[in-house]
Amino acid sequence: MPNIVVLVKRVPDTNAKITVSGGSLDLAAVKFVTSPFDEYAIETALRHKEANGGTVTALTLGNDACDKVLKDAKALGVDNLVRLWSEGWENLDSNGVQSALASAISDLGSEVVYCGKAAADSNAGSTGPGVAERLGWASVSNASTVSFEEAGVEAMIPSSSGQARVGLNFPCVVSLDKGEMEPRRPNVRGIMMAKRAVVEVISADAPTPTVNVIRYSPPAEKPPGKTYEGAGNVSSVVQALRNEAGVI
């Protein structure tokens, strides 16, 4: 029966206002949540277990503030909660994050890993394929639906001509897009279990970062646009798109 790992990340709520001051982010007043695409990864992991048995372990990398997203996953039905952390990991680059996660996944003895296609904060999408490469596993990214087989999974992924139905043997990493599925909501029993759940904290080696953040800045302000009242101004807008903007 499959030993399933789902990667989750704590990120600012996508509704939150992000304040930048003096080259730094001020996230003090921001509510943090599980990254939206990770919810589809959790849902897929739980469906995999419901179909074929096994266990689901939610794994995150972060300090103790990240216990909350693990417990939220527990409330949905995940079995085990593991948090990966060491002192001095505040500024890991992708190389460090993936090395540590790959080593933890290897120690957990997993054969299939689900994650979101990208985290809502960085929008990078590097973790799934990067971890797979370090483990020497197959991977697909941006899967919209996954079905479960004895020795692997089948996933629908976007292709240049539409979609492709692809098969992967274990061990493999699958990153999830939104797709058609609706992630479940926690029930009362799940929430009670999550309160009592224990988070196992482990560590690993991670290389020193070679990508270093210099500063954050607010996005460039656009000059205010022109707003016209009424459909009679369509012609003015079309002319402006041709003559001012030069885009049509």
Partner: peptide, 27 residues
């Protein structure tokens, strides 16, 4: 390491949008 979604490069510094475009990070 990988730096994704770069939109400008100046003096060896790379800038990408993060937090859904609500901030830019320069590395």
């Amino acid at each position: 390491p990988i730096v994704q979604n770069v939109i400008s490069i100046n003096n060896g510094e790379l800038t990408s949008p993060v937090y859904s475009g609500k901030a830019l990070v320069t590395v």
